[in-house]
Amino acid sequence: GSPLAQQIKNIHSFIHQAKAAGRMDEVRTLQENLHQLMHEYFQQ
């Protein structure tokens, strides 16, 4: 897949890990990143 698709997959797993660790501030930051990446992805 594209590097962007790979990045989106990575962030999904980072979010999963951050949630499991209870780091909600990190989850929020990652979700904002994910949102931006998704936006770029669909602009392609």
Rank of each mutant, 00 (worst) to 15 (best):
L4C: 08
L34V: 02
A20I: 12
I15H: 00
K9Y: 03
I15D: 00
F42W: 12
L30F: 04
E26F: 05
H12D: 04
E26L: 14
Q36V: 10
E40A: 06
Q36N: 10
M24I: 09
G22M: 04
Q7V: 10
T29I: 14
P3I: 13
T29E: 11
R28N: 05
Q44S: 12
Y41Q: 04
L34Y: 03
G22F: 02
Q7P: 01
G22E: 03
Q43N: 11
Q31Y: 13
E40F: 05
S13A: 13
R28K: 11
H39P: 01
H16Q: 15
K9W: 03
L37C: 04
T29C: 15
M24D: 08
G1Q: 12
L34C: 07
L34R: 00
Q17I: 13
M38G: 01
E26Q: 09
K9F: 03
Q44A: 11
K19P: 00
L37T: 02
P3V: 12
Y41W: 13
L4T: 05
G1K: 13
L37Y: 02
K9S: 07
I15G: 00
L30K: 01
I8N: 00
H16Y: 05
Y41N: 04
E40K: 08
P3W: 14
E40I: 09
Q7F: 08
M38W: 09
A18T: 02
H16R: 14
A21K: 07
F14N: 14
E32R: 10
M24N: 06
A18W: 02
P3Q: 14
L37W: 02
Q43W: 07
Q7W: 14
M38Y: 13
H12N: 10
A5S: 09
A5P: 07
K19Q: 11
F14L: 15
E32D: 10
A5E: 14
N33W: 14
F42P: 03
Q6K: 07
D25G: 06
Q31G: 04
I11S: 01
E26H: 05
S2D: 12
S2K: 09
N33T: 15
F42I: 09
Q7C: 09
P3K: 14
I11K: 01
Q17W: 07
I11P: 00
Q43V: 08
S13E: 15
L30V: 01
I11G: 01
Y41F: 11
H12Y: 13
N33F: 15
G1H: 12
Q6P: 03
M24Y: 12
M24H: 10
I11Q: 02
A5R: 08
R28T: 06
I11R: 00
H12W: 13
H12G: 04
N10L: 14
D25A: 08
Q36H: 10
L4M: 06
L30H: 04
H39T: 09
Q43D: 10
H39E: 12
S2T: 12
P3D: 15
R23V: 02
V27E: 01
K19N: 05
F14R: 15
R28D: 04
I8L: 04
L34K: 00
Q44P: 07
D25S: 07
L30S: 01
Q36T: 09
Q6N: 06
Q31K: 10
S13Q: 14
H12Q: 13
A18C: 11
Y41P: 01
Q6Y: 02
Q6W: 02
Q31F: 10
H39W: 08
A20K: 12
L30A: 05
Q43G: 12
N10D: 14
H12R: 12
G1F: 02
E40H: 05
G22K: 04
L30Q: 02
R23L: 09
M24L: 11
S13I: 14
L34Q: 00
H35S: 08
T29S: 11
E32Q: 09
F14M: 15
E32G: 05
F42N: 07
I8Q: 00
A5G: 08
R28S: 05
P3C: 15
P3F: 13
E26M: 09
E32Y: 06
F42L: 10
K19Y: 05
M24S: 06
E40C: 14
H16E: 15
R28M: 09
N10G: 04
H12T: 09
S2G: 12
H39K: 13
P3G: 14
L4W: 03
S2H: 11
Q7L: 14
L37D: 00
Q7I: 12
A20G: 04
S2N: 13
D25W: 03
L34T: 00
E26Y: 04
V27Y: 06
I15N: 00
I11H: 02
D25R: 05
R23Q: 06
I15L: 08
L4I: 12
S13V: 10
H39R: 12
S13L: 10
Q43I: 08
N10H: 08
G1Y: 01
I11Y: 04
H12K: 14
R23I: 02
E26G: 02
R28W: 04
Q6M: 05
Q17E: 13
A20Y: 01
Q31T: 12
T29H: 11
H16A: 14
Y41V: 05
Q17A: 13
I11N: 02
Q43L: 10
Q6H: 04
I15R: 00
F14H: 15
A18M: 08
H39F: 08
H35C: 12
I15F: 01
D25M: 05
F14K: 15
S13D: 15
M38T: 03
A18V: 03
A5Y: 14
R23C: 09
T29A: 12
Q44L: 11
E32N: 09
Y41K: 03
I15E: 00
K19F: 06
P3L: 14
Q43A: 11
P3A: 15
H16I: 12
T29W: 10
G1W: 02
M24C: 14
L30C: 08
E40G: 03
M24P: 05
F14Q: 15
H35L: 11
L30G: 02
S13N: 13
A21T: 05
S2L: 14
F14P: 01
Q44D: 11
M24K: 05
Q36Y: 07
Q17P: 00
H12F: 13
Y41A: 05
T29P: 02
K19W: 05
A18P: 00
R23Y: 05
I15W: 01
K19C: 11
S13Y: 12
I11M: 10
L30Y: 04
A5H: 11
H16F: 05
A5D: 09
Q43R: 10
